[in-house]
Simulated assay, not measured.
Amino acid sequence: MIRGVVEPARLGQVVLPDGRRLGWAEWGPEDGVPVLLCPGGATSRSMGFGGDVVGQLGVRLVSVDRPGLGASDPSPGRTLDAFARDIGRFVEARRLSGVAAVGFSAGAPFALACAAAGVVRGVAVVAGTDELANPVFAEVLAPDVRRLVETVASDPERAEVFFSGFSAEAMWSFVIPTLADVDRAVYTDPVFERVYRRAMDEAFSQGPAGYARDTVLTMSPWPFDPGTLRVPVDLWYGARDTSTVHSPDFGASLAGRLPAAERRVLPEAGGSLLWTHAEEILRSLLERTRGR
């Protein structure tokens, strides 16, 4: 079942101390437990999940556009650490407390960066992009992904120029043929496809620079050591996920590096489990972060 692809209940922007704006969207009760969503690559704040369960779970889901995407102002040369600082200021400005995070796909490194910075009290990584530049993956990455990771390492500016050649339409045409049947059924569902494609259009509304910077960061070494994270981290993967840019081992090596990780590989699921298993993901995150 595709869970909760619904319109945001609230939209807005927060002005940071340097004058930049971060765009946000919310679902669920305003007095609910705040859960920050770090969206997948090339999508915007409007692509939520679990819209049909956040109310009963008491979750206030908050999705934030990363700089240069959607309704958030650009921040050229930004880093994962800089994003975490932005979110720290965002949380303070919106007076959110006890925030947990969900990082989907390419949003996973951003959510973990927030945990490393002490901004969130727990993370659910869902079909998350792993640290692809980690030497443990050197021999197991798909050849085209390995070449991109090597280009990012040797010439990040050239890599960023390459990624700037993508558009919302190009991303759709690139992603859909690579999906397993279980995921293609989700992404091409008429309601889901409309929301997803709109989120991609919004992500590229300022041009491709925001997406390009995001992608360079997801293919670069992480600036934090996962072994230093003391917050609980749920790792959720679908065994039928065919993406070459999520995790080559479905989070197995990452689970070994995170002191408080629980890893789940669902045999019947694909990479779209954020929408097919929303309630399970949110319930576990709430349970594991309760009282922290």
Rank of each mutant, 00 (worst) to 15 (best):
G4P: 02
V5W: 03
V6Q: 09
R10G: 04
Q13F: 07
Q13T: 15
V15C: 01
P17T: 14
E26H: 05
W27L: 06
W27Q: 03
W27D: 01
D31Y: 05
V35L: 14
P39G: 02
G40M: 00
G40D: 04
M47Q: 15
G50F: 02
V54I: 10
Q56R: 15
L61P: 02
V62D: 06
S63V: 07
V64D: 02
R66G: 00
S72P: 11
R78A: 09
D86T: 07
D86P: 05
I87E: 02
R94Y: 07
S97G: 14
V99H: 07
A100R: 09
A101E: 02
F104C: 04
G107Q: 07
A113G: 08
A115I: 13
A117D: 06
V123R: 00
V123G: 01
V125E: 11
V126L: 07
T129M: 01
D130N: 15
R146G: 12
R146M: 02
L148E: 11
V149I: 08
E150K: 06
A153Y: 09
S154D: 11
S154Q: 13
D155M: 08
R158N: 03
R158I: 03
G165Y: 01
F166H: 06
A168H: 02
T188A: 03
D189S: 10
F192T: 05
F192R: 03
V195A: 15
Y196A: 06
R198G: 03
A203H: 08
Q206H: 10
G207M: 09
A209C: 04
M219Q: 13
R230Y: 02
P232H: 05
V233A: 05
L235M: 09
T242I: 05
T244L: 07
D249G: 12
L254K: 00
A261C: 12
E262I: 01
L266T: 08
L266H: 13
A269Q: 12
L282N: 06
R283I: 04
S284Y: 01
L285K: 03
R288D: 13
G291R: 12
G291Y: 13
